[in-house]
């Protein structure tokens, strides 16, 4: 394969990877919505009432989770891989940042996969399971969604720091995106309280514990992916150029009159993983 063909494929995959973030939000969000599990019933619900409700929406759960497992989980992996690759290529060449982002994406996909499988198994057996067991499985679905938050926060913080670093060329990732990442990362902390309360705003169906971190994560992925897709217009022929890009922050010394060739060389040199 000629080098330019390889570059073309690489660029196309970058574009597709960025779009897969948007696809993840739509498919995973849509799949979850289709299950009928939202809004989540409170942890304080009587087991028999919960089991009867889940039995009523059994096929919704099975179909919704099939959608989540089919598209959502896969696209989280492809998007995370692309994000890590682009962070390394355009923001900061640190291999550690790249690996953390990729591994957290993988963890997120596996977590989502386990969640989808458990929810499917719960719906599959809901008519024959004791209600207490059904409720335990129901708890497990939401705990899997909420409480393993720490790696995701780490990923969001590292992405933010990489974007704020001086090596960031600014062609793909604007600096404000770092602050959005910090904000979304900080909100993950709220998930912790879900194991202490059975009802109210800090329980696993609460506004503060479920909707705020859950929605902010989806918003973060969506905003990030849209920036990646839109940032593509600043990247020409596989080499980032920033002639049209306004720097957000003035340099430490002297005026900045646009990217230099040295900047481009630095970006190109950082592409290898």
């Amino acid at each position: 394969m000629r080098p330019d063909e390889n570059l073309g494929l690489d660029r196309r995959l970058e574009q597709l990877g960025a779009w897969s973030g948007i696809a993840w939000v739509v498919i995973c969000g849509g799949g979850f919505g289709a299950t009928g599990l939202l809004p989540v019933w409170a942890a304080s619900t009587k087991p028999a009432a919960l089991a009867a409700h889940l039995s009523d929406i059994k096929y919704q759960i099975l179909i919704g989770m099939a959608v989540v497992l089919f598209g959502g989980v896969t696209f989280l992996m492809t998007w995370s891989l692309t994000m890590g690759y682009q962070i390394k290529k355009y923001a900061n060449p640190s291999p550690l940042v790249f690996y953390v982002i990729v591994f957290v994406g993988l963890i997120g996909a596996i977590d989502g996969m386990i969640e989808g499988v458990i929810a499917s198994a719960m719906a599959f057996r809901v008519d024959t399971l004791p209600p207490d067991t059904t409720q335990l499985i129901f708890d497990l679905i939401w705990f899997l969604f909420l409480i393993p938050w720490a790696p995701f926060m780490l990923c969001q913080l590292l992405a933010g720091f990489a974007i704020l670093s001086e090596q960031n060329t600014g062609v793909m990732f604007p600096r404000w995106l770092a602050y959005v990442s910090f904000w979304a990362g900080a909100l993950e902390v709220f998930c912790t309280s879900s194991v202490f309360y059975y009802h109210g705003p800090f329980s696993y169906n609460g506004l503060v514990t479920f909707w705020v971190p859950g929605a902010s994560y989806f918003i973060w992925v969506l905003v990030f992916a849209v920036v990646q897709v839109r940032g593509w217009k600043n990247v020409k022929d596989g080499v980032p150029t920033s002639a049209d890009v306004e720097p957000d922050v003035a340099p430490a010394v002297g005026p900045r009159v646009g990217r230099t060739d040295a900047d481009r060389v630095r970006v190109e040199a950082s592409v290898g993983i």
């Binding site: 604007p174 600096r175 404000w176 959005v180 910090f182 705020v212």
Partner: peptide, 19 residues
Amino acid sequence: GEPGIWIFVLLDMTIFAEM
């Protein structure tokens, strides 16, 4: 500062306002 920190402040204060 820079525009990004104001986005962060507004978003974070919105969450607190919700609480």
